[in-house]
């Protein structure tokens, strides 16, 4: 049908036209841009990983890379530094945290270490961190013992909150700390300290405090004298006794017990020998010479 020399105007072929229309279809473009590349990548990865040996190699490679990063010197911890602890506690800490240095900081479980250190009886609080320079820094605040407590199980050191800090070898090793005794004495440390503070004027004579029935205190003096203190107002009662002592030299007399348990009726117990002596003198005065 074409004329011999007629030159056709350019026109897209049927297939080029259809392809272009297809490429202009939004859904198809979405498919081509997102879904198809995703599927291709996914299928390549799946095929490659379907081999056991390749999987092992991949995981080995990943592990190696991980290890090589973790063991870089920047991440290594070489030294443990303990601040704020006395020598014995520091030794305790080193004992309960057995870490072989050098160690990667990725392998350190700081929270666990912190829990362990804070769990020590002598430690009030602890912070654990890795300091630059590869130092495991443990900063602790110790509990300070304020009393020596003698119980049935032995001698112990007690801090002001009533925590048993450590056991003491002997009373003489902690001569500067006051002594308390009796069951439940460690639970009333604050009161005990107040009593010791009030007993400052007779400090030289005070041997210690005894907790009686886990409710009240006895002050024990050096020659076996005792001051029974009431449950409530123990400090005031003790102050009264000291005031009496100042005025009348009460404690220098031959008393065994000053009983302040009933505040409106203080009672004195005189030593038996003195009572007998007192009776003898009474008889002499009366003129009764039976002996």
């Amino acid at each position: 049908m074409q004329q011999v020399a007629a030159k056709c105007d350019p026109a897209p072929s049927r297939w080029a036209y259809r392809l272009e229309r297809l490429m202009l279809t939004p859904l198809f473009r979405l498919f081509l841009r997102i879904i198809l590349p995703f599927m291709v990548v996914f299928s390549i990865a799946a095929i490659w990983l379907s081999d056991e040996a390749r999987r092992d190699r991949l995981s080995g490679f990943v592990h190696e890379a991980r290890v090589s990063i973790e063991t870089r010197p920047e991440f290594m911890v070489n030294v443990m530094a303990i601040d704020g602890a006395s020598v014995s506690i520091a030794e305790d800490i080193r004992e309960i945290i057995p870490i072989d240095f050098p160690l990667s900081s990725f392998d350190l479980e700081l929270e666990h270490i912190q829990e362990q250190v804070a769990g020590l009886p002598a430690v009030a609080s602890a912070t654990v961190r890795v300091r630059p320079g590869g130092i495991l820094q443990i900063t602790i605040t110790e509990r300070d013992p304020v009393l020596v407590w003698r119980s049935r199980d032995g001698l112990f050191l007690v801090d002001q909150e009533g925590f048993v800090v450590a056991s003491a070898k002997s009373r003489a090793a902690h001569a500067d700390l006051p002594l308390v005794a009796g069951a439940g004495a460690e639970l009333a440390v604050q009161e005990a300290r107040a009593l010791f503070a009030a007993a400052q004027p007779i400090k030289a004579r005070v041997r210690g405090l005894v907790r009686v029935g886990e409710r009240r205190w006895d002050v024990v003096l050096n020659n076996g004298q005792r001051i029974f203190l009431p449950v409530d107002g123990a400090v005031q009662a003790l102050e009264r006794v000291i005031a009496l002592n100042d005025a009348q030299d009460l404690l220098a007399r031959d008393l065994t017990v000053v009983d302040m348990r009933l505040s409106d009726r203080p009672t004195l117990r005189i030593a038996e020998r003195s009572v007998e002596e007192w009776w003898r003198i009474r008889r002499l005065q009366v003129g009764n010479t039976e002996e």
């Binding site: 056709c8 105007d9 350019p10 026109a11 897209p12 049927r14 036209y17 272009e20 229309r21 202009l24």
Partner: peptide, 11 residues
């Protein structure tokens, strides 16, 4: 062919 050309260009 002409319609194809023109539609393709407009598209």
């Amino acid at each position: 062919r002409a319609i194809r050309t023109v539609v393709q260009a407009a598209q």
